[in-house]
């Protein structure tokens, strides 16, 4: 346990309000629900919090088929049945067939762990409701072995959501909620600085300008986000593209170079091309 307050790290820029949210969740041992546009570093936050506070990280990635029970434990009845046919000795102890879930693992941790429940909105809409008691009391009951599992240390729980489904009120009431706003240009500059120290001023300025211009095109299905910007800059550097190529008043180019890293959707590319075409026409006319 190195420190108790989170304030970002050398790889992750946390705004003061995000740091406050994390610290409040740590202090009061309540789950923190993080929402925001895709690619704004929601998942990464858990890794950084764990690293900064020196805590073990348990990750539970949710899929559409995930059940709340899987996070607690699963009883493998089929393999027990099979073992009983083969006359194995371990069949007599039901505990041999209880498979621990991520939540149980986190509860058993000797130091206070960080538990990431990633993309909770992917699961069935009843999923959060099934975890209410567990998150509230930090304990659950294993019916097969008549055992009460209680957290040794209340884990720091970070939950991310992409807003695909709305979460039930009862669940929300138990969480802190923070919406990661899309970074403004200054924050974005410091984020890029963290990832690409020593990037040429000129290139950075042009890249950011092109990036924010692209984000402002109305009607984009998927606006490029932080992670896409970082990928794009990596590509620009790898291809050694000069800053001049990114300049907006270059009428010959329609889209910024290597735009495939920024626009992931054919319709969006089409749309941007059209917008660029129209603006060029109006400038000429």
């Amino acid at each position: 346990m190195t420190q108790t307050r989170f304030a970002g790290s050398e790889r992750y820029v946390a705004t003061p309000e995000l740091a406050l949210a994390v610290n409040a969740a740590v202090t009061l041992a309540r789950p923190l629900l993080i929402k925001g546009e895709p690619g704004t570093g929601k998942t990464q936050l858990a890794e950084e919090v764990a690293a900064a506070l020196g805590r073990p990280l348990h990750e539970w990635h949710i899929k559409s088929t995930s059940k709340a029970q899987q996070g607690l434990y699963e009883y493998d009845a089929v393999s027990r049945l099979r073992d009983s046919q083969l006359g194995e000795g371990r069949v007599h102890d039901i505990a041999n067939y209880i498979v621990k879930g991520k939540l149980w693992e986190a509860f058993e941790s000797d130091t206070q762990p960080v538990l990431l429940i990633d993309e909770i909105d992917k699961a069935d809409i009843e999923f959060p409701n099934d975890l209410l008691r567990e998150l509230d009391r930090m304990e659950f009951y294993v019916y097969e072995t008549r055992q009460l599992v209680r957290a040794k240390h209340r884990p720091i729980i970070l939950i991310t959501s992409n807003n695909e489904k709305e979460l039930p009120d009862a669940f929300l009431r138990r969480c802190f909620f923070h919406y990661i706003r899309f970074p403004d240009e200054a924050t974005m500059r410091s984020i890029v600085d963290v990832h690409f120290p020593g990037l040429k001023r000129e290139l950075l300025a042009e890249a950011l300008a092109a990036f924010f211009r692209l984000r402002e095109v109305p009607g984009l299905k998927k606006k490029p986000s932080t992670s896409e910007l970082l990928d794009w800059i990596k590509l620009l550097l790898a291809e050694d593209i000069p800053a001049e190529a990114l300049r907006s008043d270059d009428a010959k180019k329609t889209l910024p170079p290597l735009y495939g890293a920024l626009l992931k959707n054919e319709q969006d590319m089409h749309l941007v091309e059209q917008v660029m075409f129209l603006s060029r026409r109006s400038r000429q006319g």
Partner: peptide, 23 residues
């Protein structure tokens, strides 16, 4: 628990964190 201390902005963020659950 002194999570937010002596700053209106912190208090604002803390209140929002605790009370508002939908952006």
């Amino acid at each position: 628990a002194r999570v937010a201390w002596l700053s209106a902005e912190d208090f604002y963020h803390l209140a929002r964190l605790c009370l508002v659950k939908d952006e």
